[in-house]
Computed example of a mutant assay.
Amino acid sequence: MLKAGDSWLEFWKTSEGMPEMTMLQLIVDDADGYAQFVKSNGVEVQGPMIEHGEKMY
């Protein structure tokens, strides 16, 4: 996991019930608006999910 300001880049290895993946966590004020913006630029986005009282994509 690499910290960049308040954002994170995570590299996950395969484990039970979890495939290998890279996860980019960007801290933004408007998760829905940002998700729509990146989708419109061809980025695959999963979500939304609510975890720990925060909306995540």
Rank of each mutant, 00 (worst) to 15 (best):
I50H: 09
F37C: 07
D32F: 01
T22M: 12
Q25T: 11
P48Y: 05
A4F: 11
G33H: 11
E10T: 05
M23A: 14
H52A: 11
A31K: 00
G53F: 09
D30M: 04
Y34R: 08
G33T: 08
M21T: 10
I50Q: 14
Y57R: 06
D29L: 03
N41C: 09
Q25W: 04
A35K: 00
D30A: 03
L9D: 08
E10Y: 07
N41P: 04
W12H: 02
P48L: 01
D6N: 15
V43I: 09
S7T: 04
I27S: 14
M1I: 08
W8A: 07
A4C: 10
D30K: 04
K39V: 04
W8E: 08
V38T: 07
M56G: 01
D30N: 10
F37R: 10
H52P: 02
G33F: 09
E54L: 03
V45Y: 01
K13G: 13
D32C: 00
Y34A: 06
P48R: 03
D29K: 07
E10M: 07
V43M: 07
L26C: 08
Y34K: 09
V45G: 06
T22Q: 10
H52C: 05
H52I: 01
P48C: 04
I27A: 13
G42C: 01
Q46N: 07
L26S: 05
Q36E: 14
T22S: 11
F11M: 10
A35G: 03
E20I: 00
K3M: 15
H52Q: 13
K3D: 15
V43H: 04
W8Q: 09
H52V: 03
M21G: 13
D6Y: 09
V38S: 05
D32Q: 02
M49K: 06
K39F: 01
W8M: 10
Q36C: 02
E51A: 12
V38Q: 05
K3F: 15
M1S: 15
D29V: 02
M23C: 14
I27H: 14
I50T: 15
L9I: 12
D30E: 09
S40Y: 00
M23W: 06
G5L: 01
S7F: 03
P19M: 02
M56F: 01
M23P: 04
I27F: 10
G42T: 02
G33D: 11
L26N: 05
M1L: 10
T22N: 13
G33P: 09
Q46M: 07
A4M: 11
N41E: 12
M1A: 15
S15G: 11
H52R: 12
E20S: 13
H52W: 06
N41H: 14
G47Y: 05
G42R: 02
T22H: 11
E54W: 02
D30I: 03
L26V: 10
A35Y: 00
E44Q: 15
H52L: 06
D29T: 06
F37H: 11
H52F: 06
L9F: 12
I50P: 03
G53I: 13
Q46D: 05
G5R: 05
Y57K: 01
P48I: 02
L24D: 10
E10F: 05
V38F: 07
S15I: 06
V28H: 14
L9G: 10
M23S: 14
M1F: 11
